[in-house]
């Protein structure tokens, strides 16, 4: 549940929760609506094979959606935050390897067939998201009032 924060730390936790909840829920919508295009986007990263990319395409958007909703509602908060951190790390690795391999593909981060190609800005934004997710996990770990 969203409670009124009592300390600065609680305010930061609430802000990060709402930020990641909004980001994850928004990012999941286009992927849920267009699973075929999203499977193609995943395949374009050339990390996993053609069939496995489809499994990820029907799973990842719902993971993002549920994580977003759980972060928003405060359900299994620590576990959700850890999974969120794992996702941000995976996204950074995927985007980073595509950039450094010179793949001319769209990120697919928020829209499955966006026209923009992966650039250095995507790397920095993913690093920022990863750092923010680490902060959220650390603050929750050292906050005994929060539930798991």
């Amino acid at each position: 549940m969203i409670k009124m924060p009592a300390t600065v730390k609680d305010w930061i936790i609430l802000g990060l929760r709402l930020f990641f909840a909004g980001t994850l829920i928004y990012a999941s919508i286009d992927k849920i609506l267009n699973p075929i295009d999203f499977a193609q986007t995943i395949f374009n990263y050339q990390i996993i094979g053609v069939r496995l990319s489809r499994w990820v395409a029907i799973w990842l958007p719902y993971l993002e959606l549920i994580l977003g909703l759980f972060l928003l509602a405060g359900i299994w908060l620590k576990s959700s935050a850890r999974l969120n951190l794992s996702l941000m790390l995976i996204f950074l690795v995927a985007v980073g390897q595509a950039y450094f391999r010179g793949l001319k593909i769209s990120c697919g981060c928020f829209a499955v067939d966006g026209p923009e190609k992966i650039g250095i800005g995507d790397i920095f934004s993913n690093i920022a998201l990863l750092l923010a997710s680490i902060v959220l996990v650390l603050l929750l770990e050292y906050n005994p009032k929060k539930s798991t």
Partner: peptide, 17 residues
């Protein structure tokens, strides 16, 4: 849960795989 949910919803999705 998200994997099972994803598989289930994909089968009902008009543009599902």
């Amino acid at each position: 849960l998200t994997l099972v949910g994803g598989i289930f919803i994909n089968q009902l999705h008009p543009q599902g795989i």
